[in-house]
């Protein structure tokens, strides 16, 4: 049922897939995510929706291989099927809701996208472009080989700024440096959307707070069911406990406790690393490290 109709390698360890998912395309909007599973006992992996085609009943997802489960997914080819895809999950982005369009049009919006966050940002920028809203996009990664979607992004935004941490492509520096540079040039934004690694979102928020730019972030927490049952995705937002799956994934970035979120996201690192090694090399490691 969830057939992969297109697969494309975007960058090192990053693949794009167009997948049939009728249950998702009827109502999905930018900002929402899905949960995918492969194999009878496959793990439920949350992935942001990067694009969708309601007529063809297809969604686009981008997968970065970081553990055994994402590696298994990346090995699937065109014609193969995911065992399960469920969604759309989470709330749509507020600026991509028709009822908010008039408000959105009044804003001067900047997106800051880092790494895999480029894909979900594209989805929002494209929706805004189709609804007559032009916005600025700062997109970056550590190095040139990890960049993707530059042309796609330029086709939906007139102001795309590409950065790399090591200077191998575009602006030499981080997204925050580029944002600060634009500010120093006299460009004023009043709404920022930051999507990327938690540490990046933390520093974007630190800067935008100084610059008084309202900032929304998309929190990529650990989840099991993703529908509001397990509570794994909880985080603190302005001292209140929130669940990313039903209350988010987007939150006011100036209220999110990023340090706590980063600790929570790292919770299963040891277990995941072990499973990944097992998947890649077989059972080469048998205890002794005191972690397993």
């Amino acid at each position: 049922m969830f057939e992969i109709v297109k697969k494309k390698v975007l960058a090192d360890r990053i693949v794009l897939m167009d997948v049939k998912a009728k249950n998702v395309t009827e109502r999905c909007l930018p900002g929402q995510f899905i949960i995918a599973r492969t194999g009878e006992d496959g793990e439920r992996i949350p992935l942001t929706i990067c694009d969708y085609d309601r007529e063809k009943e297809e969604i686009t997802i981008v997968i970065q291989t970081i553990g055994a489960s994402t590696e298994k997914m990346a090995l699937l080819n065109e014609g193969d099927c995911f065992t399960d895809i469920v969604g759309p999950l989470g709330n749509p982005s507020e600026i991509c809701l028709l009822e908010n369009l008039e408000e959105t049009k009044k804003k001067n919006i900047v997106f800051v996208a880092g790494g895999l966050g480029i894909a979900p940002v594209y989805c929002q920028v494209k929706w805004l472009h189709e609804h007559g809203v032009d916005c600025s996009v700062i997109m970056g990664s550590r190095t040139k080989d990890l960049l993707f979607f530059i042309e796609e992004m330029e086709s939906v935004s007139g102001h795309v700024y590409v950065t790399t941490d090591d200077g191998t492509y575009g602006f030499h520096g981080m997204g925050t440096d580029q944002l600060k540079a634009l500010y120093d040039e006299g460009i004023r934004f009043d709404h920022c959307v930051a999507i990327g690694p938690t540490i990046m979102m933390k520093f974007v928020c630190k800067l935008t707070k100084e610059l008084s730019i309202h900032t929304v972030v998309s929190m990529n927490m650990i989840m099991v069911d993703g529908t509001g049952m397990c509570g794994a995705c909880r985080l603190l937002v302005g001292d209140e406990v929130k669940f990313a799956c039903v209350d988010g994934p987007e939150f006011d970035g100036h209220l999110v406790d990023f340090d706590l979120a980063m600790k929570r996201v790292a919770l299963y690192k040891t277990e995941e690393g072990r499973k990944k090694l097992e998947f890649e090399e077989g059972e080469t490691h048998k205890g002794g490290c005191k972690n397993c």
């Binding site: 006992d41 793990e43 099991v224 794994a232 790292a266 277990e271 995941e272």
Partner: peptide, 30 residues
């Protein structure tokens, strides 16, 4: 309560039962 190591029973049980973490399948459990 938000510290690593605090789980809801729903999460702990779902990982073990539905996702079969007890049988060392793909989903991790602490």
């Amino acid at each position: 309560e938000q510290a690593n190591g605090v789980f809801s029973a729903n999460e702990y049980l779902t990982r073990s039962n539905l996702m079969k973490a007890y049988a060392d399948k793909d989903t991790p459990i602490k």
